Simulated assay, not measured.
Amino acid sequence: MTTVLPSGACNAHCHVFGPRERFPYAANASFVPAVDAPREALYALNDRLGLHRCVVVQSACHGFDNTVTQDALAGRPGAYRGIALLPTDVPESELKRLDAAGFRGVRFNYMRHLGRPTPIDEVLRLARRFAPLGWHLQLHGDPGMLTELAQAIASAPVPVVIDHIGRIDASRGLDQPDFSVLRRLLDHDHVWVKVSGIDRISAEGPPYADALPFARALVAEQGDRVLWGNDWPHPNHRGPVPDEDLLVALIYEIAPTEAARQRLLVDNPHQLYRFGDEA
Rank of each mutant, 00 (worst) to 15 (best):
N28H: 13
S30I: 10
S30A: 10
V32F: 09
V32P: 04
V32W: 06
P33N: 01
A34V: 09
D36R: 08
A37H: 07
P38W: 03
P38Y: 07
P38R: 08
R39A: 14
R39V: 13
E40A: 13
A41F: 04
A41P: 02
L42C: 07
Y43P: 06
A44W: 03
L45K: 05
N46G: 09
N46F: 02
D47H: 11
D47I: 09
R48C: 09
L51P: 04
H52K: 11
H52E: 14
H52P: 05
R53P: 04
C54G: 02
V55R: 01
V56E: 00
V56P: 00
V57E: 01
V57G: 00
Q58D: 02
S59T: 11
H62Y: 04
F64K: 13
N66R: 05
N66G: 04
T67D: 12
V68A: 12
V68S: 06
T69E: 01
T69G: 04
Q70W: 03
Q70N: 05
A74S: 13
G75V: 14
P77F: 11
R81C: 05
G82W: 09
I83N: 01
L86K: 12
P87R: 14
T88N: 07
D89Y: 15
P91N: 10
P91W: 08
P91S: 12
S93L: 11
L95I: 13
L95P: 00
K96Y: 13
K96L: 15
K96R: 15
R97G: 12
R97S: 12
A100G: 15
A101Y: 09
